[in-house]
């Protein structure tokens, strides 16, 4: 349960970072969400062996981290925590794809190693950017933004309620687990059967709470739609942020495809 707790702490900490003041924090949430979305699409669109051509894209998260004065130690640690997933995804590539793709002097680099490296870079870029986005926008800010950008309202609401009640539910689960461990001795009382009972309890409590929340909503005039407050106006600075960064991503993507650049990079590596 300690793991779950620290995850919840992470969200809280990211939200605290989101309350800070900086030029990046002041930008409209829609601008940041939209730019991040395009960033992720561009990162995903690269060739599977792309390594060097991905590097310029690091400029985007790095500039945001510096401008927003985010603690890179914290972000780095979070990235490392989820890194095993990316390692698992790419771990077999070097074994499966042994065709030489690149010669670094006399050293032959196989396609497998290149694609493995590429996966790790993409992972760092996308997951890192997701963390940065929450830290400069806040989770509710992102939900509001996707609602205003035209995503179905129910989708934004699901996320908002998830965010609101995950702490309450986490606290309940923590209390239950603590109560169980206080009465479990010599490994007895820790079995799967007990876990099943705990989960059932948690589900029941959740359903009951959902009913009470629904009552609370009804008592304040809820008739099926949840009103969300308007966001501040989209300014020219927001527009410039989206335009310039997206222009940069697309330029990097187009240039990476050009044969001349590849030859130039290959020369450089030799």
């Amino acid at each position: 349960m300690a793991g779950t707790e620290s995850r919840l702490f992470d969200i809280t900490f990211l939200d605290m970072l989101a309350c800070q003041e900086s030029p990046v924090h002041r930008l409209d949430a829609r601008a940041k969400v939209l730019t991040t979305f395009i960033f992720v699409v561009v990162v995903a669109s690269f060739d599977k062996y792309a390594v060097v051509s991905l590097l310029p894209l690091f400029l985007f998260p790095l500039v945001l981290v510096v401008q927003a004065r985010l603690p890179y130690g914290f972000l780095g640690k979070r990235l490392l925590l989820v890194a095993p997933f990316a390692l698992m995804v790419g771990a077999f590539n070097p074994l499966l794809d042994q065709q030489t793709q690149l010669l670094l002097g006399t050293f032959a680099v196989t396609g497998g190693w290149l694609s493995f490296l590429s996966i790790l870079l993409r992972f760092t870029l996308t997951v890192g950017m997701a963390l940065v986005l929450i830290a400069v926008t806040s989770f509710p800010g992102i939900c509001n933004a996707i609602d205003k950008l035209g995503a179905p309202r129910v989708f934004a609401l699901q996320l908002l309620f998830l965010y609101r009640y995950i702490f309450v539910l986490g606290e309940e689960a923590r209390r239950m687990v603590r109560a169980r461990s206080l009465r479990s001795f010599h490994g007895r009382g820790n079995g799967l059967k007990v876990y099943g009972a705990l989960l059932t309890q948690l589900l029941w409590r959740t359903i009951e709470r959902a009913q009470r929340v629904h009552k609370a909503m009804l008592s304040r005039g809820f008739v099926g739609t949840v009103p969300l407050l308007q966001m501040k106006r989209f300014t020219w600075q927001d527009g410039a942020f989206v335009g310039l960064w997206c222009g940069f991503f697309i330029a990097v993507r187009i240039l990476s495809g050009s044969a001349e650049l590849q030859v130039w990079v290959a020369e450089l590596l030799k």
Binding site: P140, Y163, V213, A216, R220, G221, P227, L229
Partner: peptide, 15 residues
Amino acid sequence: FMPTVREDVAFGPLN
């Protein structure tokens, strides 16, 4: 149940 205090208090009046 809303993400911020302001939005929560505004929920009823907006409804």
